[in-house]
Amino acid sequence: MPVTITAHQLGRLIDRTISNMDGEFTAVLHGIRLEADAEWLYAVASDRYTVAAARYRHDGLEGEPFARTLPAGAVRALQEWTSAQPGHSPVTVTAEGGRVRVTAAHSDLGIAVDPSADFFDWRGVLRGVIEQTSVPGNVFPVLNTRLLERFGAAGPLVRVRATADQNAVLIAGQDFLGALMPVRVRGMDSDGLGTLDQTQAAWQDTLSTGGTATMPDNIPARQHRPRHEITKDLAETAGDLLKQTLRSTHDALASTTSDEAFAAYATASVTAWRAYRYLDALHTADPRLAATIVAETAEELDSGEISEFAWEAARKAGHDPAAWSQELEDRLANALTSAPGQPAQEAAVNTSEAGSTT
């Protein structure tokens, strides 16, 4: 009953749910539940106060669906194992009897499990949280901030829905669904904060001196990042590359000044598009590695030493950057001996070609 997924995806399933495991004194919840159906591989964990379910669409399931609970100790080992694999590397997860085996190209890990171990109906619990309706009135739930921290790895952005004082709070993100039970504290209403009206009354003296506003006019708007600073944000980097592609393509088609300008715009457009496609593929295979590379590249660009970095990278890759440099100088020298009106154009075109090649 093997299922195939990338090492990054399996690692993220563990990362997003490991904080929600219960302690050793609740054996049935002291671990992470792995379940596979015809479309998804799920990881589910709960400590009775929180529920976290993450999923990734797998690359194929052979045989019947399976469900096994990985013991907490093995979960830590699996987390370390996946982090040691290339993020894009295919990983096969097989559950047979009392053993779950994860296999990569050059490594595998076997985990002993109890195939008869019960697990709660997490689908029914989360369905109940989604389907609960808002209760009339202005009561709102009391949440334990320490339990909120357990959803820190759910994703950079999540949606939250609270329906009533004693109802679980729904937490939803991309391929992630969670629930957080409210705290039932005896005498909580005695602090005067049991309802929205009570909270408003408690703060009325402080807040009544100001008018209702979304943002005071005297607070400066967010400043744009200086043009000379390179973003370390992956999404912003991808957007910059697409913007550069579109602008350079437009400028190339609209250029009527010279062949040099057309060649420069065309080279910038092609280079930006290639960079975007490579970044998008890397993000699909291993988002964590993509974010790391974007941040490291931003620091390299800010250092102003990319020529030295490129020279060293070319040398380590087995190329001869000195020969490239000499070839470019020879082309420029030949351009100077060309017919009048041709040197600048030929030099620019050859420079563009040399740049696109390297």
Rank of each mutant, 00 (worst) to 15 (best):
A238P: 08
Q345E: 11
K232H: 09
T82E: 00
W81Q: 01
L328M: 08
A295M: 04
L126D: 09
W311Y: 12
Y49K: 06
V113E: 02
T26H: 12
E296P: 10
D165E: 15
A348H: 09
A272T: 04
L253S: 08
T206H: 12
I293P: 13
G155C: 04
A310C: 03
L242H: 03
W324M: 06
A314I: 00
T212K: 12
D302N: 02
A179T: 03
R150L: 14
V3T: 00
V100D: 06
L148V: 07
P182N: 01
V183K: 13
I293G: 04
D191G: 11
L13V: 10
F25T: 09
N138G: 10
A52S: 07
A53M: 11
D205A: 15
P343I: 03
G63P: 08
I171T: 15
Q132Y: 12
K243R: 14
L242P: 02
M21S: 03
A36R: 00
W122V: 15
D118S: 11
G87I: 00
G192L: 13
L242N: 04
A313D: 13
W273Q: 10
L336D: 11
L170I: 06
A235C: 08
V102Y: 09
T103W: 09
L10R: 08
G124H: 05
G318W: 07
V185L: 07
R99G: 13
A290W: 00
L196F: 11
R57I: 04
F309Y: 01
A285R: 05
A172K: 10
R227V: 12
D191W: 15
P226K: 11
A117M: 05
D233T: 13
A348Q: 11
G155I: 01
L13D: 08
R99K: 02
L242W: 01
L289M: 04
A117K: 12
R123K: 05
G192H: 13
P343H: 02
D37E: 01
I293T: 14
E300H: 01
A285M: 10
S303N: 00
V100N: 02
S89E: 02
A104T: 07
Q204E: 14
E296K: 15
S307Y: 03
G31W: 03
R99W: 12
E229D: 07
Q223I: 15
I18P: 00
G304C: 01
P136F: 02
A172W: 14
Q79P: 09
D286V: 04
A252S: 11
P340K: 00
L170A: 13
G128T: 06
R227G: 14
S248M: 07
V135A: 11
A84Q: 05
P115G: 09
G23C: 04
M1G: 11
T94L: 02
V3E: 00
Q79D: 10
V139C: 15
A290V: 03
P141A: 01
R150A: 10
A36M: 05
R186T: 06
G60K: 04
I32N: 03
S255Q: 06
V270Y: 06
A27R: 12
A261D: 15
A45C: 01
P86D: 04
Q223C: 13
A344N: 14
S255E: 11
A268V: 12
Y265P: 15
L332K: 06
D37F: 15
N20C: 10
G137H: 08
W81P: 03
W273D: 12
V294F: 05
Y56S: 15
S19H: 09
